[in-house]
């Protein structure tokens, strides 16, 4: 049995840990709000982009582009998007596990991993591989330039025939409490043809050239949206994890206080008994 002094010390430790988890929870909540606002701000552009692509695809069924080309997958690239930091529950591990599963499914293990976020970067030892693709630091808000650069390099790899497909594994953000690790195909681009496409559009210079300019930009936009969602999910996950930790600390403080009180009570009773016993002996 611990002494009263030891228990008091433990209460102090738990309380200071609770301060930290509580602070982290609040910081994550603030960052989550910013990440959500950023994701919402980026949506009109992404939607408009998607619309233009659909109208292009609808304008001509024969419209083709190397980035539409579905090839037999001999080499697969898997972009794994997670966080720079830990302390966010199972957020990083679930992405890691899913990404590893995807690599396992690749024919003859001919898969290249493209880690995004320091946790993924380290997990896949990207720093030790020469010319590894990826992004070491994702940051607190998705960065457009970083997304565009990575999208560009992935597109180049696809066009050079060094990979036949690029998939992305990331955490899809539904609501603050609902997140899900998903896999999406990034390259080749699958245009959704013929979904109620209105009207005869004039294309300048022509549909093929607009398409050639649009597709790389479209891929970058998709990747940026994925980064933005993953970042929002990360902050939501951290907020939840830290909220749980704070509640656990509360419970611990409560039960320790109870034990401490019992011990103190027992000590007082014992002293009293001794006093009474001593007094009786004197009479």
């Amino acid at each position: 049995m611990a002494t009263l002094k030891q228990i008091r010390r433990r209460i102090r430790t738990v309380r200071s840990t609770r301060h930290i988890t509580k602070a982290m929870e609040m910081v994550a909540a603030a960052k989550l709000r910013r990440a959500q606002a950023a994701a919402a701000g980026a949506r009109p552009y992404a939607d408009a982009m998607q619309g233009v692509l659909q109208r292009l695809a609808g304008a001509s069924r024969t419209l083709s582009h190397p980035l539409f080309e579905l090839r037999a997958v001999r080499r697969l690239a898997v972009v794994a998007v997670a966080a720079d930091k830990g302390l966010c529950g199972g957020f990083n591990t679930s992405v890691l596990r899913r990404a590893q599963a995807c690599i396992g499914e690749a024919p003859d293990g001919a898969a290249e991993i493209v880690p995004v976020g320091r946790r993924m970067w380290r997990a896949f030892r990207a720093g030790e591989r020469e010319g590894a693709l990826g992004l070491e630091l994702l940051g607190d808000l998705a960065d457009w330039d970083a997304a565009r650069d990575l999208a560009q390099r992935l597109t180049e790899r696809f066009l050079e025939g060094r990979v036949d497909r690029v998939d992305v594994v990331y955490t899809h953000f539904e609501t603050v409490a609902r997140r899900e690790v998903v896999k999406e195909a990034l390259i080749p681009v699958e245009p959704r043809r013929g979904e109620g496409v209105p009207g005869d559009y004039i294309f300048e210079p022509d549909a093929a050239q607009v398409l050639a300019q649009l597709l790389p930009r479209y891929i970058a936009t998709r990747l940026f949206a994925i980064f933005a969602e993953s970042v929002a999910s990360e902050h939501a996950a951290r907020m939840q994890a830290m909220g749980n930790a704070t509640r656990n600390a509360d419970e611990m403080i409560e039960s320790l206080t109870l034990t401490g009180n019992k011990l103190r009570q027992a000590a007082i009773t014992r002293e009293l008994t001794e006093l009474v016993g001593g007094a009786e002996a004197l009479i």
Binding site: V52, R55, L56, P198, D200, F203, E204, P205, Q209, V210
Partner: peptide, 13 residues
């Protein structure tokens, strides 16, 4: 290029 109201549907780079 100039666009006024009720312009024909157009997509351009």
């Amino acid at each position: 290029l100039g666009v006024l109201a009720h312009h024909a549907p157009l997509i351009t780079a």
